[in-house]
Amino acid sequence: MRLFTLTATLIAAAGLCLGTGPATASEGGELKASHFSFEGVYGTYDKAAAQRGFQVYQEACSFCHSMSLVAIRNLGDPGAPFYDEEHPNPNESPVIKAIAAMFTVTDGPDIEGDMFERPARPSDYFPAPFANDQAARASNGGALPPDFSMLVRARAHGPQYIYSLLTSYADEAPEGVEIRDGMNYNPAFKGGMIGMPPPLFEEQVEYSDGTHASVEQMAHDVVTFMAWAADPKMEVRKRMGWMVMIYLLIFALLMYGSYKAVWRDVEH
């Protein structure tokens, strides 16, 4: 009975920690219900969706949004969208080499002291579209397009929020909501007025696997990709988590057995 009270307290306390954590997250715009493969304790990244999401990022987002913490080689790491079991080292994976070849990066200085352009290698990080934040703002009407690397984890209810943001654009703002010049109406964004123009439109990209590229589909895919970018070790972590939990459970049962055995002859 006492053990029960204690367990209940622990669970309640842990729940309280959880409850107060994201409590401040509820403000902001309206979220649409959406579900992703990586949710829950068994969740993994839907590789096909993440690969399509990478295509969406490349063709629709990367002109404004950097992803500076992710290296090209990361795309081929275990748990990543382009992981290839035959090439566990992404630096040698032909897919990763082909993706790297799509980019040019600035390197240097060379012997003369000048910077030069060269084809990217898997070890290079995704090149940023703008040289610095000021340049990014200047090209985007004063608004800074946030970096994608941690964006899903840097927003409350990140996956749902970004999905909603991408799919909630409306041409006409409702009565009473005033939209300034150069701004756009989006009820998912706090305040309803966002600097980013609608980034996705029907059939914007052509998926090689034949999936219909609706706005919802592209939003779903790019969120999956961004979730991977923000938490690339999630699959490894959850897998080890289960092993650790099973181990601790066995250890706990053994320790409880020892406890009962030690205390057997003692009234307490």
């Binding site: 954590g21 840097a154 972590r237 289960w242 601790l248 706990a252 320790m255």
Partner: peptide
């Protein structure tokens, strides 16, 4: 042994956070 048992149970709570909800107690900002 009694503390040992309690410690393992508590480590399970800690592990649940570390492996399955590492951001639960963190603020997204």
């Amino acid at each position: 042994v009694k503390d040992g048992f309690a410690i393992i149970v508590f480590l399970m709570v800690l592990s649940a956070f570390v492996f399955f909800a590492p951001d639960a107690l963190n603020h997204p900002d």
